[in-house]
Amino acid sequence: MRAFYGTELPNPLMLGTAQYPSPAILEQAFRVSGAGVATVSLRRESGAGQTFWSMIRDLGVLILPNTAGCHTVKEAVTTAHMAREVFGTPWIKLELIGHTDSLQPDVFQLVEAARILTDDGFQVFPYTTDDLIVGERLLAAGCEVLMPWGAPIGSGRGLNNEYALRAMRAEFPDVPLVVDAGIGLPSHAARAMELGYDAVLLNTAVARAGDPVDMARAMALAIEAGQLAHRADPIEARDMASASTPVIGKAFLS
């Protein structure tokens, strides 16, 4: 398995911590899925932050703070610095939002912020599009992980452009790749892993499911199945049938 800045993930599920019906359900979702990474954010202190932090710490998973909601390089860089201090990790999920409706990353600012942060010792996990050239620029800026979107955040549409995601896998064979955002169903997550992706990052699909705990487990199983299938070297699809039962030895009965 490809390592993330030298760290091997215990499990290729990266799970968000937002939007759960209760903290207890969030905790159970992590326990049953075995998710290896929890994404978190920073918001104005309202009193709830300290309880949340002690609960997350008790999960014993790796912490990946985000810069969610940032629209400028300055905002994202400042948020990253604040997150590094609070969470005590150089990891940062770099989000630079360019469009309000689609939450599409602003890839131009993303590359700029990634360079500033890597120069400053951060280990950047850029939330990006599936554009190959942007991927190259991010790597040149010092990123050692790429996180292309499957579909817009929270949309649950799955892998909108499987062709592009496959091309990305082929173009960057040594780079850990994560499908981040857009996953709605376990089959979407399994597909990402079948394509050879190293991890899947999701939140809404689990947190907003009728039963988040069962969905978390379903996602974990699908991800494991997809990963195993990729390693098992699947057959190529073909247009015509190919008999699986031997023809030799068939009785003459017509």
Binding site: G16, T17, A18, Q19, Y20, L26, T39, V40, S41, L42, R43, R44, E45, S46, A48, G49, Q50, F52, W53, I56, P65, N66, A68, M82, V86, F87, I153, G154, N203, T204
Partner: peptide
């Protein structure tokens, strides 16, 4: 002055 704390995130 901004004072930020850990919070849920995706």
């Amino acid at each position: 002055v901004e004072v930020l704390a850990p919070m849920q995130g995706g």
